[in-house]
Design a binder for these strands. Structure first.
Lengths: 149, 149
DNA sequence: CTAACTGCAAAGTTTTTGCAATTGC
DNA sequence: GCAATTGCAAAAACTTTGCAGTTAG
């Protein structure tokens, strides 16, 4: 027969570690890096390993429960909010905020016709100076947030 | 201490290596990675080192002559076209194309008022399947690291 | 029971840095 | 000359993988 075998679907088990990673991501507002999540996780589960964090981020991403962002070149960041939304990023301190959902929708679908692409999704990133960085000309960036670009 | 000294501005010298990197980037249409640029550069200057490529990419970026893209999580890509334009990326093969400049402008500046940010620039990335990938096997949803490039 | 999951350590990638020699101005 | 630049190699930063032991179903 034609190889019509179903996908060798992997059956997931639950794990404390994966739950923790997801919970951290959902309750943080800073679009953190894997390393930041790892440090956070150690506070609740001291023996958790970085490999486990990376593996679970990958699984959660494939499950569609979290999103992997390309905001900083050379480093992946994660977002526990999978709803369609835009980001705004500070050029000075690297902080990334969510844009209010009311941001005007563009009719992206038209792009498909122009390019031949079959459009699935889109993302907009706006860059500038956050309120804090506009004020202090001092290099008081990063606060308690995750790493800088 | 009235440290009012002017910026210790660094005076750039020209170098064959930097010129080569810039020329490669301007004549390539594939939004390449640093490594791709390095391999390309070796074809013209066999002794060039990867460190030199990285250093020059950084300098060119700071000079504003090229742009660093965040398209693929965990790896930086570069663009020799610094004009404002959008990108469209294939979810299957990872290829990144430019969008026609006619793409409708959004009034981004309004975002400043809503967020308190001082807006400098913005970028839009649209994702989907490129014409080639729409045809062959239907194993989409891969989010792979572009095998192309 | 057994396949998924974990911690650890080792390896793989991508990017940066220290240093002596070279080069542009 | 002097500082910017280079090649090399080593280090740092980020991510994945192999393996033996553990755990959920």
């Amino acid at each position: 027969m034609g190889d019509t075998m179903a996908t060798p679907e992997k059956v997931l088990k639950s794990s404390k570690q994966r739950d923790l990673v997801l919970q951290i991501l959902r309750s943080s507002m800073c679009h953190p890096t894997a390393d930041w999540i790892y440090e956070e996780a150690r506070k609740h589960m001291s023996k958790i390993s970085k490999a486990t964090v990376y593996r679970n981020l990958k699984i959660l991403k494939e499950e569609g429960k979290i999103r992997e962002l390309s905001i900083s070149p050379g480093i992946a960041r994660y977002d526990g909010d999978i709803r369609m939304h835009y980001h705004i990023k500070c050029l000075k301190c690297g902080r990334v905020d969510d844009l209010p959902h009311v941001f005007p929708q563009v009719s992206i679908e038209d792009v498909g016709e122009a390019t031949g692409y079959q459009v699935h999704s889109h993302r907009m990133e706006i860059m500038g100076l956050c309120p804090d960085c506009q004020n202090d000309g001092i290099r008081n960036n990063q606060m308690n947030r995750s790493p800088i670009l």
